[in-house]
Design a binder for these strands. Structure first.
Length: 515
RNA sequence: GGCAGAGUAGCUCAGGUGGUUAGAGCGACGGACUCAUAACCCGUAGGUCGGCGGUUCGAAUCCGCCCUCUGCUACCA
């Protein structure tokens, strides 16, 4: 039986259209999912939308539609984005689905049965916009007579009955979890922050609301709906069949690796494992937080006018270059910058010039001089051996990198081999050798094609479409593109006729302003 | 205020259990080649490795202080 692997994105809040941050997380998670599949795992890749909560209600009201209509409309946009980005998700969960209501109520009951949920009341200055309570001292009454919170948003006095989760009881258990599982979360900077937060003491958590009803009813007390995080986080186990913990899907896939943004680290590394421990469910395998993306160093905002949608990027540069750019340029876990210039630089230098051109020059040589028949290798020289060994050595390096979500490092390693292959090709100068030594000529082209084969297989997770194109040109059968075909044991078979070469990665040529 | 991380070539960053001429990519400049997507290949970049002081035969790498930036967190009011 194959080893299994369950990976998730955070579910998106669809009170607006998807932006580049959503796309980034989705592309990265998809890449890891694809990598693991190619590496022989039975993968379950989950993404979806978090459709409840007061903000959805407010946005809907503003637009004069029901929250349900808003959710349907905007979730469709997220599903469209998933198609646009070529996501290979196995499931798309919506928190408004029946299965999720069932799972959320079940985890609630389980936490309650464990004595961790109690009824109390919460009073304080509440900011609807921040979704947070503040101490009176944190607020101020301004000249307009309105009281504002520390984020500059209006606050109102709210006193409401609420169910609480006994988070305070989990401090030691959480610390033990972090201690015993150093890989529970990453990157390391986040770990320190979470540790100090938990060490400083945990307060019980308000987990229900009575002031609105767009949510999952609390079982046994339908005046309340579950507050955002119980509802939202539970999606991960809903999708594998919770509460049927002995069901096939659940036993097979849970626990998951969660890929999230750095803004929701606490919910995933503190609240979520506490909920799960309370409910008697295994905690996640790992939580990894990526950074934010900035357009030319500026945070994207509608007022600055630098909001770029995923669709515009894909339309402008093409899907694979966009995926490649973000995953290669931004160390996964750090914040990153993007700009038109940076994207073009990457796609032209790495894709068109380095990889695309290497494929083009070698394959067209085979087409023009050898009638498109893949030559067989003659005597293998040291330089041949060296470059093939470099390609053969990539899988363990990439595996290690992807295992720690360091997608950029895997790409780095692959492109180092591409650069080596270009040096190899230039040093061997097949265009000159052709005139004097047919056998050596064929050998150089064979070796180059073999390196391209391995590169093609390895870049499938990041650029599925382009990789397929490259492997097609090399005559690699579709069923021989898994990672089990990497390395020296499944070299290209000589003698086959290759299709006429076509460009894989076109250069991005700036359109001259027509003035 | 506390804690954590960061400050290295024009740009983006590697590195750093202390030890020959501090690295890569991009950009720029020069050269070579002409198979190829005006691509590829070779060479050049003379950077106080944030600042000051210390330890040491020797520090970018260890210690102390300071400055700047970022994150988390607290508090004053």
């Amino acid at each position: 039986m194959k080893p299994t692997f369950f990976i998730t994105t955070a579910i998106s809040y669809p009170n607006g259209a998807p932006h580049i941050g959503h796309a980034y997380e989705a592309m990265a998670t998809d890449t890891i999912a694809r990598f693991m599949r190619l590496d022989g795992h039975d993968v379950h890749f989950l993404t979806g939308t978090d459709e409840h909560g007061i903000k959805m209600l407010q946005t809907a009201r503003k637009e004069g539609i029901s929250p349900r209509e808003l959710a349907d409309r905007n979730t469709a946009l997220f599903q469209e984005m998933a198609r646009l980005l070529g996501l290979s998700n196995d499931d798309f969960i919506r928190t408004t689905e029946a299965r999720h209501k069932k799972a959320s109520q079940a985890i609630w009951e389980a936490m309650k049965a464990n004595g961790d949920i109690y009824l109390d009341s919460y009073a304080g200055w509440y900011s609807v916009r921040d979704e947070a309570f503040y101490q009176e001292g944190e607020t101020e009454v301004r000249a307009d007579g309105v009281r504002y919170g520390p984020q500059g948003t209006p606050v109102e006095w709210v006193e409401e009955e609420s169910y609480f989760f006994r988070l305070s009881a989990y401090q030691d258990k959480l610390l033990a979890l972090y201690e015993d599982n150093p890989d529970f979360m990453g990157p390391d900077e986040r770990r320190n922050e979470v540790l100090s937060f938990v060490r400083s003491g945990l307060k019980d958590l308000s987990i229900s609301r009575t002031t609105f009803d767009w949510g999952i009813p609390v079982p046994g007390d339908e005046r309340h709906v579950m507050y955002v995080w119980v509802d939202a986080l539970t999606n991960y186990i809903t999708a594998v069949g919770y509460p049927d913990v002995s069901g096939e899907t659940f036993t097979k896939y849970w626990p998951a690796v969660h890929i999230i943004g750095k803004d929701i680290v606490r919910f995933h590394t503190v609240y979520w494992p506490a909920f799960l421990m309370s409910a008697g469910v295994a905690v996640p395998k790992r939580v990894y937080a990526h950074g934010f993306l900035f357009n030319r160093g500026e945070k994207m905002s509608k007022s600055v006018g630098n909001v770029v949608g995923p669709k515009e990027l894909v339309d402008t540069y093409g899907l694979d270059p966009v995926r490649y750019f973000f995953l290669r340029e931004v160390p996964f876990g750090s914040d990153g910058n993007y700009s038109h210039e940076a994207i073009i630089a990457r796609m032209n230098a790495d894709l068109a010039n380095d990889l695309g051109n290497l494929a083009q020059r070698s394959l067209s040589m085979i087409a023009k001089n050898l009638g498109g028949v893949l030559p067989k290798a003659g005597d293998i020289s040291d330089s041949d051996r060296e470059i093939m060994a470099a390609a053969d050595a990539l899988l363990p390096v990439c595996r290690e990198a992807i295992g720690r979500q360091q997608i950029h490092q895997a790409l780095n390693a692959i492109w180092a081999v591409v650069a080596d292959a270009n040096r190899y090709f230039a040093a061997e100068a097949p265009w000159a050798v052709r005139k004097t030594d047919e056998v050596r000529f064929g050998t150089i082209l064979y070796v180059t094609a073999e390196v391209l084969r391995q590169v093609g297989i390895l870049i499938q997770p990041v650029m599925p479409g382009s990789a397929a194109k490259l492997l097609d040109l090399l005559g690699v059968p579709v069923e021989e593109r898994g990672f089990d075909r990497l390395g020296p044991n499944h070299r290209l078979v000589a003698g086959g006729t290759l299709p006429p070469p076509v460009g894989i990665f076109p250069r991005f040529v700036e359109e001259k302003p027509a003035d």
